Simulated scan of single mutants.
Amino acid sequence: MTTTGDPTPPVGDSSPARWQPDTYLRFAGERARPFADLLARVGAESPARVVDLGCGEGALTASLARRWPAARVTGVDSSPEMLAAAAARALPGRVDFALGDVRDWAPAGPVDVVVSNAVLHWVDGHPGLMARWAGQLAPGGWLAVQVPGNFRAPTHALLAELCRSPEWAGRLAEVAPRADTVLDPAGYAEVLGTAGLSADVWETTYLHALSGSDPVLTWVRSTVLRPVLARLDDDAAGRFTDAYAAALRAAYPPRPDGTTLLPFRRVFAVGSRPA
């Protein structure tokens, strides 16, 4: 899910910019593909305990239960709105969901697979959190993490520039996206290796063809724009959004067929503990 480190809220924060499942799921297919690519490199065969940290509305969590039918799968998220949507996917004894902040999560015992998809970019100091999760894996356990790696892309750079402009800096400078929010692949390989895991780390840039009016703005509304708009009243939010939308249209112009291309880089880190 979602796109800058602290002081912006972690995934699922119930601040004025609450998560809206319907808005987030408008691009469900595009957001699901990195999850599938991440899990394709997890070699667990028959895990008993699987946890999805930052599970959102639960669709991808449910796919973990289909992959590992004998596993007990738990999704954790701090958004009541997302968990309300996830409740329909719960299966007694197999799939359950819990309200909680990923920064505070601690299992009752060792876990076989820990997944965190598009979550940790919300958490300041998340490499330390990954090291802690690695220590909670059972022998032969797996840790799989994916984070957006596009913090230097126009979506984020233009937003940061606007937040720090004279008109908005007083209210928004501290929530402007930071270019150093996530590590590069080598950095995550070091985190996993230092934690005693065998590391498999890579990056991919997806090229999404979006449609509709201001589709890039629609994409970021449910992610990086949320904590920014949470600082503004309705009038100010409207003026800010109009300025940001104009900048995005210039950076991501529509093609003759009406679609708009959005390159989106993501970084993947999978680690396994020796059995």
Rank of each mutant, 00 (worst) to 15 (best):
T4P: 10
T4W: 14
P10E: 10
D13Y: 12
S14I: 01
S15Y: 11
P16N: 05
R18L: 08
D22P: 01
T23K: 13
L25S: 13
R26A: 10
F27P: 04
G29F: 04
G29M: 01
R31M: 06
A32F: 07
A36M: 00
L39C: 14
P47E: 12
A48K: 14
V50G: 09
G54Q: 12
C55R: 02
C55H: 03
E57W: 00
G58A: 07
L60S: 12
A62K: 13
S63I: 02
A65I: 00
A65V: 01
R67L: 00
W68L: 13
W68A: 11
A70I: 00
R72C: 11
G75V: 02
P80Q: 01
E81F: 00
E81H: 09
M82L: 07
L83T: 11
A90F: 04
A90W: 05
G93E: 05
V95F: 12
R103I: 09
A106C: 12
A108V: 13
G109S: 14
V111S: 04
V115P: 04
H121K: 00
G125D: 05
G128T: 14
G128M: 13
M130I: 12
M130A: 12
A131S: 14
G135D: 06
W142P: 12
L143V: 08
L143W: 07
P148M: 12
P148D: 08
A153C: 07
L158F: 06
L159I: 11
L159H: 10
A160T: 08
L162D: 08
L162S: 07
R164A: 13
S165P: 08
P166H: 02
E167N: 03
W168T: 07
A169R: 15
A169G: 09
G170P: 05
G170F: 07
A173G: 03
E174V: 11
R178C: 10
A179S: 14
A179W: 03
V182Q: 04
L183D: 08
P185A: 07
G187A: 06
A189T: 11
V191A: 11
T194H: 15
A195F: 01
A195H: 04
A195I: 06
G196N: 10
A199E: 11
E203N: 11
T204L: 13
Y206R: 04
Y206L: 10
L210F: 09
L210Y: 06
L210I: 07
S213N: 12
D214R: 15
P215V: 08
T218H: 14
T218P: 00
R221P: 03
P227D: 09
V228N: 04
L229Y: 03
D233E: 11
A237W: 14
A237Y: 14
T241I: 03
A245E: 08
R249T: 06
P253M: 03
G258L: 07
T259I: 06
T260I: 02
V267P: 10
A269V: 04
P274S: 15
A275H: 15
